[in-house]
Design a protein around this nucleic acid. Structure first.
Lengths: 173, 173, 173, 173
DNA sequence: GATGAATGAGCATTCATTCAT
DNA sequence: CATGAATGAATGCTCATTCAT
């Protein structure tokens, strides 16, 4: 991965996240990256190839995030870890998650299977804690996480700490 | 509103919701509506004007939805009404809500103030029920609704009824 | 000629003169005339038909102008009459002459034969006054008139009265 | 300036001069230049940018023309130089001057200040020759030049040599 | 006579992509 | 590896014109 390749990925991620994949031209990406337009195609074949590379890069980040959750033994710790995600999206990852969430809405561009492993982990935790319907609880917790991440990525509400406290109380965490 | 005008709105709503506003050309809208491309501009001035007309149309639906929630007296009924929304998105409104949720991610195209009134209603209900931090509870419930609507609009999970039951239990509804 | 027909001609003349025939759409003409676009075509067949009608209307004005020149007996009076033209373009005729002069530059749209009769009249006057080369003098005077009209229509120089005096001196008028 | 850039400029100049700026589409320019339409915009940004580039190119020609007039010492030589212009528009410059004169009639597209320096030079010459009203004489001579150029560019009268002789006699040149 | 909905071709411009250098 | 000239299809939009009412 050359320096210019990274510049392109960085610029594309930022622009795609902010304006949307379809609304950003390769020309704009090239200019933002300080690179000739042709270079994008030499390195990534396609505009879509560029998107794919960005997704790949982020998938790795997501995987390591997921890894840290499974490691815990105490099921409450697992839930704490899972629920912590939307409250801890740091600046570096902000653009990436914004793009991933935005892409969800664009039909062909998104792979919905990504959240499957997390659902399994959550269900196991709820089962261990003796919840009545662990699968539904897992589904709900994933849904809540999506809601929280959406709020964090789009509106950045001021009282997120209070929300977090309220939510954690409901699960006695 | 002529017949062709409605055809255009209908086709545009469907396409914008499915593929995203930026990814759908006016040409495609015209063809889907069985109409000449020029007619779109005669009636809606702009591609953006077309979007605006769609939003307008949906805003009215949303307002009547909101209206029915405020009318209730029992705060639990209010919460039931609010939380019922994502479970009751019927076919007719499906495209509209998908578009609205998708547009959220496209910066300039979305007005975030839309959810303000609902937040107020929810906070009042939680206060009446003696919840410790009604504002945080209201924020959380809006976030959960966003998560639920997203799930319903994008993935249509099979166990939504179980999720609904699990969620309502948490609020003793 | 109905009232609306006249409104159309008036509006078209003004717009064509100010912005140029090609740069003005029939839509703009209709709106400026307070008339439906279709009406233009009912009355004038074509956008070009509209232009033709305007030219026709003006041709009549020009002819009556020319007529008044021929009537004089004294050749100096004839020259005075001819040369007076560019200094006496009144408001009502301003738009018409601006359009005619502008159209000259647009190839197919202009009939150059219009100035023929005036050339003849001028040549006769110069011959009567004993000028050495009456034909060349006539050609020159027509050219000067074009220059004067151009100045008057485009730049409206402040010292036109002085110019007029200077010019008339040269011909001892 | 690549070869294709020059082809575009050349073709655009010819077409704009013959049919008028507004009446010539970029598509026609591209086809006449044997070039893809997109290339016009890569090199000149705009259709207007293309016009601007043409004007720029011609302005330089005009400047060198003007330069040669100021150099003369004898005021009669100066006048001869100035008046010679419309009689010496050679083929290469023909299209350029036709375009410039045509643009005059299109309001926003023309900069009227271009003739200012020439007016000053002419006025100085007439003053040196003891003419009664040098400013009016200068204005008149510019007007005559405009008339002559118009005739030359639009009608190419056959007896221009005789006209030239007649005119020069009036100024004893 | 008059309207305005409707059309299809054309417009300036942008786009993703290719390729010689 | 990197550039930037070049392309052709597509885009949002405007145009002159038609036609049912």
């Amino acid at each position: 991965m050359t320096e210019k390749q990274e510049k392109i990925l960085e610029a594309a991620l930022k622009l795609f996240a902010e304006k949307g994949y379809a609304a950003v031209s390769t020309n704009k990406v090239a200019r933002a990256a300080g690179v000739s337009e042709g270079l994008i195609f030499r390195h990534f074949t396609n505009k879509e190839g560029l998107l794919e590379a960005i997704k790949q890069q982020g998938m790795e980040k997501a995987q390591s995030l997921l890894g840290s959750m499974v490691m815990r033994e105490d099921p409450k710790d697992v839930l704490r870890g899972i629920l912590a995600f939307p409250f801890n999206i740091d600046k570096e990852e902000y653009h990436y998650w914004r793009l991933m969430y935005a892409l969800k809405w664009q039909a062909e561009k998104y792979d919905h299977s990504m959240s499957h492993p997390m659902r399994k982990i959550a269900a196991d935790a709820f089962k261990a804690l003796g919840y009545a319907d662990p699968d539904a609880e897992a589904e709900l917790i994933l849904i809540i996480i999506d809601g929280l991440a959406t709020a964090e990525l789009l509106r950045r509400p001021q009282n997120m700490e209070a929300v977090r406290h309220t939510l954690f109380s409901k699960y006695e965490l």
